[in-house]
Amino acid sequence: MESAIPAYLETMRTRHKRVPDDYEPPYPSFVARYKPAVSRVVMAYFGVQYRGETPLAVLTEIAGLLAGEDGPSHWDRAHYVDQSGYETIVTVAYWGDVARFDAWFAPAREAWTGKARDGIGTFIEVLRPTVARHETLFSSPDRPEGVAVIAEGMSGEVQEHAYWGGMRDRIPLSQTDAMAPGGAPELIRDGARLRVTAHDNLCLIRSGQDWSDTESSERKLYLDDVEPVLREGMDFLRDDGLGIGCYANRYMHVLAADGSASEKSYGQSWWKSLAALERWAESHPTHVKIFGAAMKYLSTLGPSAKLRLYHEVTVAAADEQFFEYRNCHPKTGMLAAVETVSA
């Protein structure tokens, strides 16, 4: 069994794992493996906020930018309705080469948030973490999602999962650093554009579900017994998460290439700290309920379950973040964090 932390990122621990060295998880899970030459990854979220008809021309515009020189190695697109009733489509793009991203980003940013669009808001949320500040986890090794698509491949079965604290233990920096948050979000006004400077050790999670391989009885079990509980928890974080350290949450339906809804979803949320995310996961009633429904589902189906689960978690340094919004309402993304700080 492998460690989730690749050998080249292992170091002498000053902070210990939550499980003993001989711990054996009850089921297999896998992590993405990057080439050792990849020191950073980039995850960039480009949002369109609107009411009414889908702004197809704007979506075509961002797709064209992403297809240009030095564009990302992978991108996908998802839709949700936010707490203020606005439709939002988010295109998230991934790079494994920061120099390529830097060459691409300046003109793309100007094209995206540098101009006004009547009745439409746009935003950019970017993290560019070192690989030591990032972890992934997959229930199956043969279908990568998100940032794992740009990795070299998947690991074998890893040890650090299926226990509270596994998420932290998979982050290489956790070997020596508590990754505590430092500072508070601040708002910078640049004409019509609003930028948020967050703080050290801001946490991002993207946590996804893929039920496209499920068949009738399993699909019914997931859609009737698990998904409603998951949605309830996601709605809590969206509407009331600020009180527990969740700045913003989006529960999104992944879109197919033709814009139709796929059988995949993911939650994406910004947290004050990894510790705040851990507290919600371990003890908050909404996540306890999600966890209970998922465990009942998996114990009922056992190894025959075809639902695929994954997540990616980043704890980003202050200089690895960029947030910019134009014509978006004040509870959009990290704007909600600034509103809370200034209230």
Rank of each mutant, 00 (worst) to 15 (best):
residue 254 V to Q: 08
residue 264 K to E: 12
residue 234 M to F: 13
residue 208 G to M: 02
residue 226 V to T: 07
residue 267 G to S: 13
residue 248 A to I: 06
residue 220 K to H: 09
residue 210 D to C: 10
residue 261 A to T: 11
residue 188 I to L: 12
residue 237 L to M: 08
residue 219 R to C: 09
residue 204 L to V: 09
residue 254 V to P: 06
residue 211 W to R: 10
residue 243 G to F: 06
residue 190 D to N: 13
residue 192 A to Q: 12
residue 195 R to A: 06
residue 229 V to A: 06
residue 265 S to T: 14
residue 271 W to Q: 05
residue 231 R to C: 04
residue 276 A to P: 00
residue 218 E to L: 02
residue 195 R to G: 01
residue 191 G to V: 00
residue 248 A to D: 09
residue 270 W to I: 10
residue 275 A to I: 05
residue 226 V to Y: 03
residue 277 L to G: 01
residue 256 A to H: 10
residue 204 L to G: 01
residue 207 S to M: 01
residue 261 A to W: 11
residue 278 E to W: 05
residue 249 N to K: 04
residue 255 L to I: 03
residue 277 L to I: 00
residue 274 L to D: 02
residue 280 W to L: 06
residue 231 R to D: 15
residue 201 N to R: 15
residue 255 L to S: 01
residue 222 Y to D: 00
residue 282 E to R: 15
residue 248 A to T: 08
residue 275 A to V: 04
residue 233 G to E: 00
residue 263 E to G: 09
residue 228 P to Y: 05
residue 276 A to G: 01
residue 201 N to M: 10
residue 275 A to W: 01
residue 241 G to T: 05
residue 259 G to Y: 01
residue 215 E to L: 12
residue 210 D to W: 08
residue 211 W to N: 05
residue 264 K to R: 15
residue 217 S to T: 12
residue 284 H to K: 04
residue 263 E to W: 01
residue 263 E to M: 13
residue 226 V to D: 02
residue 276 A to Y: 02
residue 244 I to Y: 04
residue 203 C to R: 00
residue 218 E to P: 01
residue 270 W to M: 14
residue 289 K to Q: 12
residue 202 L to G: 04
residue 209 Q to D: 13
residue 284 H to W: 02
residue 272 K to N: 12
